[in-house]
Design a protein around this nucleic acid. Structure first.
Ligand code: SF4
Ligand code: SF4
Lengths: 132, 132
DNA sequence: CATTTAAAGACTTATTGTATCCATAATATC
DNA sequence: GATATTATGGATACAATAAGTCTTTAAATG
């Protein structure tokens, strides 16, 4: 039970894009190099963010990635959900009705975490962390 | 990023033990059968709970497992930590000092979840859920 | 058209989760 | 003390997921 490295890469990349120009896209090569990850792999990750509608990609020369939404709209939870999926952290094969207390407790706990991630917008940290 | 099945088994087993006699131990065979898991595997999981000091095991005929602590002392977080470990959910290879905001946000989110799991004691659900 | 750059899919490798098997140790009961 | 019962530990096997590579295709630039 850990966040994947892909989530780590996605968060760092998004932070860079928030700090970058909203017009001129940043190439995946540059984004990958600063994180020590291969460009092709990072590209695969970023494609999921594109499909989630958070960033947009521009093919061709001088292409790359840039934000598609207002930076204030993007929360940590958005990014994490785009990468890790939205499935519940605690899954149980059986379904013993709504009265299941174990699931209730676990769900509540998860919601506490998600609530915090939802209330923290990417813009909150922008321009304060330029390295890596 | 999901809780493991082992955590699921551990939670259900603990709930049974809370409802069971605090003196007479319950055999792993019985505990395993009601959850549809093999006794040997469940035993391996329960050994971790023993080492965490939450339950104690009695070898020999009529042996098994029973609570070692007061039931009111045992929280969801205790069980989860015993199984999943206590490592942070968001790990980063680098260490860019305390000013790292990404880690700060992720850590806070995790703490929100843990706080809820810590405040929910096993005894809160006891004797209300006897099936499975 | 030639070059640059992202997208997509097939594929490989590494890591972790899930589970079984067996030998050993501990305990209760007779 | 002998025997049956029960948990423990190690080795091992299998499955699922994470992590990463490679190659080809598509789009944009100039
Ligand atoms: S009691 Fe709840 S968590 Fe447990 S098996 Fe039933 S539905 Fe699942
Ligand atoms: S900025 Fe924070 S999360 Fe990112 S690499 Fe540095 S320490 Fe890790």
């Amino acid at each position: 039970m850990r966040f994947t490295k892909a989530t780590n890469y996605a968060l760092h990349t998004m932070l860079m894009l928030v700090d970058a120009s909203p017009v001129k896209p940043v190439g995946v090569q540059q984004l990958a190099e600063s994180q020590g990850v291969s460009p092709t792999y990072l590209s695969k990750i970023l494609t999921r963010l594109v499909k989630a509608g958070m960033i947009e990609s521009i093919s061709g020369a001088n292409g790359g990635y840039r934000l598609s939404r207002k930076r204030d709209d993007i929360t940590f939870l958005d990014i994490i959900h785009a990468i890790e999926g939205t499935a519940s952290l605690f899954e149980c094969n059986f379904v013993h009705g709504d009265e299941c207390l174990i699931q209730a407790v676990m769900k509540e706990a998860e919601e506490k975490m998600e609530s915090h991630l939802k209330n923290t917008k990417l813009a909150d940290l922008a321009q304060r962390e330029t390295k890596v």
